[in-house]
Amino acid sequence: EQYVVVANYQKQESSEISLSVGQVVDIIEKNESGWWFVSTAEEQGWVPATCLEGQ
């Protein structure tokens, strides 16, 4: 499942990744806490779901 990044995010923990507007990410896991585990071409990590929008 692919989502587009709609807000920049700077990682704050080692388990997170930074996002840039316009990036496309694959969703691996959706957590009810509002944090999703995603994959980019370069890395995987947790990001806030509020930064993502379905395609």
Rank of each mutant, 00 (worst) to 15 (best):
residue 21 V to I: 08
residue 14 S to M: 12
residue 24 V to L: 09
residue 48 P to G: 00
residue 51 C to S: 07
residue 16 E to P: 02
residue 1 E to S: 08
residue 53 E to Y: 06
residue 40 T to A: 09
residue 46 W to I: 05
residue 45 G to T: 02
residue 17 I to V: 12
residue 10 Q to S: 13
residue 52 L to V: 12
residue 29 E to H: 15
residue 22 G to Y: 03
residue 47 V to S: 03
residue 11 K to D: 03
residue 33 S to G: 11
residue 42 E to I: 04
residue 39 S to A: 11
residue 20 S to E: 15
residue 13 E to H: 08
residue 46 W to V: 07
residue 3 Y to H: 03
residue 40 T to G: 07
residue 16 E to L: 01
residue 52 L to H: 01
residue 55 Q to T: 11
residue 55 Q to K: 15
residue 24 V to R: 09
residue 36 W to M: 07
residue 7 A to N: 11
residue 55 Q to W: 05
residue 52 L to F: 11
residue 39 S to K: 12
residue 54 G to D: 09
residue 51 C to I: 14
residue 1 E to K: 14
residue 35 W to P: 02
residue 43 E to V: 10
residue 7 A to M: 08
residue 14 S to E: 15
residue 8 N to V: 05
residue 36 W to A: 10
residue 11 K to E: 08
residue 8 N to Q: 10
residue 38 V to H: 00
residue 27 I to D: 00
residue 34 G to L: 04
residue 25 V to W: 00
residue 21 V to K: 15
residue 22 G to M: 02
residue 15 S to I: 07
residue 17 I to W: 01
residue 27 I to A: 14
residue 17 I to G: 01
residue 39 S to C: 13
residue 51 C to Y: 06
residue 41 A to C: 10
residue 14 S to Y: 11
residue 25 V to G: 01
residue 36 W to E: 02
residue 5 V to L: 00
residue 11 K to M: 10
residue 6 V to I: 15
residue 22 G to P: 01
residue 14 S to G: 11
residue 20 S to K: 11
residue 34 G to V: 02
residue 45 G to P: 00
residue 54 G to T: 11
residue 19 L to M: 03
residue 22 G to C: 02
residue 29 E to L: 09
residue 15 S to G: 11
residue 4 V to S: 15
residue 32 E to D: 12
residue 17 I to P: 01
residue 6 V to F: 09
residue 9 Y to L: 03
residue 55 Q to R: 15
residue 20 S to L: 14
residue 33 S to R: 12
residue 26 D to W: 06
residue 48 P to Y: 00
residue 7 A to I: 05
residue 31 N to Y: 06
residue 10 Q to G: 05
residue 22 G to Q: 03
residue 46 W to H: 01
residue 40 T to W: 04
residue 20 S to R: 11
residue 54 G to I: 15
residue 35 W to E: 08
residue 30 K to M: 11
residue 21 V to H: 05
residue 18 S to R: 02
residue 29 E to Q: 15
residue 36 W to R: 03
residue 29 E to A: 12
residue 28 I to A: 05
residue 50 T to Y: 10
residue 3 Y to C: 04
residue 2 Q to Y: 05
residue 27 I to G: 04
residue 25 V to M: 01
residue 10 Q to F: 06
residue 52 L to E: 00
residue 26 D to A: 12
residue 37 F to Y: 15
residue 53 E to F: 05
residue 49 A to G: 13
residue 38 V to T: 01
residue 55 Q to D: 13
residue 8 N to F: 06
residue 39 S to L: 05
residue 26 D to G: 09
residue 40 T to D: 06
residue 39 S to T: 12
residue 15 S to W: 12
residue 54 G to V: 14
residue 7 A to V: 10
residue 20 S to H: 13
residue 3 Y to T: 12
residue 21 V to P: 05
residue 45 G to L: 04
residue 14 S to P: 13
residue 30 K to R: 12
residue 31 N to D: 10
residue 10 Q to Y: 05
residue 35 W to H: 14
residue 52 L to S: 02
residue 41 A to S: 14
residue 34 G to Y: 03
residue 2 Q to L: 07
residue 2 Q to W: 04
residue 50 T to A: 12
residue 33 S to Q: 15
residue 17 I to H: 02
residue 37 F to S: 10
residue 44 Q to N: 06
residue 50 T to M: 06
residue 27 I to L: 10
residue 9 Y to K: 02
residue 19 L to K: 00
residue 23 Q to H: 09
residue 37 F to R: 15
residue 7 A to E: 11
residue 15 S to N: 11
residue 32 E to Y: 04
residue 25 V to D: 01
residue 3 Y to M: 09
residue 31 N to S: 13
residue 2 Q to H: 08
residue 4 V to A: 12
residue 50 T to K: 15
residue 2 Q to S: 12
residue 38 V to S: 01
residue 44 Q to P: 01
residue 37 F to K: 15
residue 33 S to K: 15
residue 5 V to H: 00
residue 29 E to F: 02
residue 26 D to K: 14
residue 44 Q to G: 08
residue 41 A to K: 08
residue 42 E to S: 15
residue 26 D to L: 11
residue 43 E to F: 06
residue 55 Q to S: 09
residue 7 A to H: 04
residue 45 G to R: 02
residue 28 I to C: 09
residue 7 A to G: 10
residue 49 A to T: 07
residue 42 E to V: 11
residue 49 A to H: 15
residue 49 A to C: 14
residue 43 E to C: 09
residue 26 D to Y: 06
residue 21 V to F: 05
residue 8 N to S: 14
residue 20 S to Q: 09
residue 32 E to K: 05
residue 40 T to S: 14
residue 41 A to W: 04
residue 14 S to A: 09
residue 44 Q to Y: 04
residue 37 F to N: 15
residue 35 W to Y: 07
residue 14 S to C: 13
residue 1 E to G: 05
residue 11 K to T: 04
residue 3 Y to A: 15
residue 16 E to F: 01
residue 50 T to N: 08
residue 54 G to W: 09
residue 3 Y to S: 14
residue 24 V to D: 06
residue 43 E to W: 05
residue 28 I to Q: 12
residue 6 V to D: 05
residue 39 S to P: 01
residue 18 S to F: 08
residue 11 K to F: 02
residue 37 F to E: 06
residue 42 E to M: 12
residue 48 P to V: 01
residue 9 Y to V: 06
residue 20 S to W: 08
residue 30 K to L: 03
residue 36 W to F: 15
residue 44 Q to E: 09
residue 5 V to F: 01
residue 49 A to S: 12
residue 13 E to Y: 06
residue 41 A to I: 14
residue 48 P to R: 05
residue 47 V to R: 02
residue 19 L to T: 02
residue 40 T to L: 13
residue 30 K to Q: 13
residue 47 V to W: 00
residue 5 V to P: 01
residue 42 E to T: 05
residue 21 V to R: 13
residue 6 V to A: 15
residue 55 Q to F: 01
residue 22 G to A: 03
residue 41 A to H: 13
residue 34 G to F: 02
residue 22 G to N: 05
residue 27 I to M: 08
residue 8 N to D: 14
residue 40 T to Y: 08
residue 27 I to T: 08
residue 32 E to V: 14
residue 38 V to C: 05
residue 54 G to A: 13
residue 36 W to C: 10
residue 23 Q to N: 12
residue 22 G to L: 00
residue 5 V to R: 00
residue 24 V to M: 09
residue 4 V to N: 09
residue 6 V to T: 12
residue 19 L to Y: 02
residue 35 W to Q: 14
residue 5 V to S: 10
residue 28 I to G: 07
residue 25 V to E: 01
residue 3 Y to I: 08
residue 10 Q to H: 09
residue 5 V to Y: 01
residue 26 D to E: 10
residue 37 F to L: 14
residue 2 Q to E: 05
residue 1 E to L: 13
residue 26 D to M: 09
residue 15 S to Y: 11
residue 21 V to G: 03
residue 28 I to L: 12
residue 35 W to R: 14
residue 39 S to W: 04
residue 53 E to R: 11
residue 14 S to V: 14
residue 36 W to Y: 10
residue 49 A to W: 02
residue 34 G to T: 04
residue 6 V to K: 15
residue 36 W to T: 06
residue 47 V to Q: 00
residue 41 A to M: 11
residue 24 V to F: 06
residue 35 W to V: 10
residue 33 S to D: 15
residue 1 E to W: 05
residue 22 G to V: 00
residue 30 K to D: 01
residue 23 Q to R: 04
residue 37 F to P: 00
residue 39 S to F: 06
residue 32 E to W: 04
residue 3 Y to P: 02
residue 51 C to D: 02
residue 38 V to Q: 00
residue 53 E to T: 13
residue 54 G to F: 09
residue 25 V to C: 04
residue 17 I to D: 01
residue 13 E to R: 08
residue 26 D to Q: 12
residue 30 K to V: 06
residue 38 V to G: 04
residue 47 V to E: 01
residue 43 E to R: 10
residue 3 Y to E: 10
residue 52 L to N: 00
residue 51 C to N: 03
residue 9 Y to M: 03
residue 41 A to R: 14
residue 28 I to F: 07
residue 29 E to I: 15
residue 12 Q to F: 13
residue 42 E to G: 12
residue 40 T to Q: 15
residue 34 G to E: 09
residue 25 V to K: 01
residue 15 S to E: 08
residue 55 Q to M: 06
residue 55 Q to A: 14
residue 12 Q to I: 07
residue 38 V to W: 00
residue 41 A to Q: 09
residue 8 N to W: 03
residue 15 S to F: 06
residue 40 T to M: 11
residue 23 Q to W: 05
residue 2 Q to R: 08
residue 45 G to M: 02
residue 10 Q to V: 10
residue 44 Q to T: 10
residue 36 W to D: 04
residue 46 W to P: 00
residue 37 F to C: 09
residue 43 E to T: 13
residue 25 V to P: 01
residue 13 E to Q: 15
residue 35 W to M: 14
residue 27 I to F: 09
residue 50 T to P: 09
residue 21 V to L: 07
residue 8 N to G: 14
residue 32 E to F: 09
residue 27 I to S: 04
residue 18 S to Y: 02
residue 34 G to W: 02
residue 44 Q to M: 09
residue 14 S to H: 09
residue 37 F to H: 11
residue 6 V to G: 08
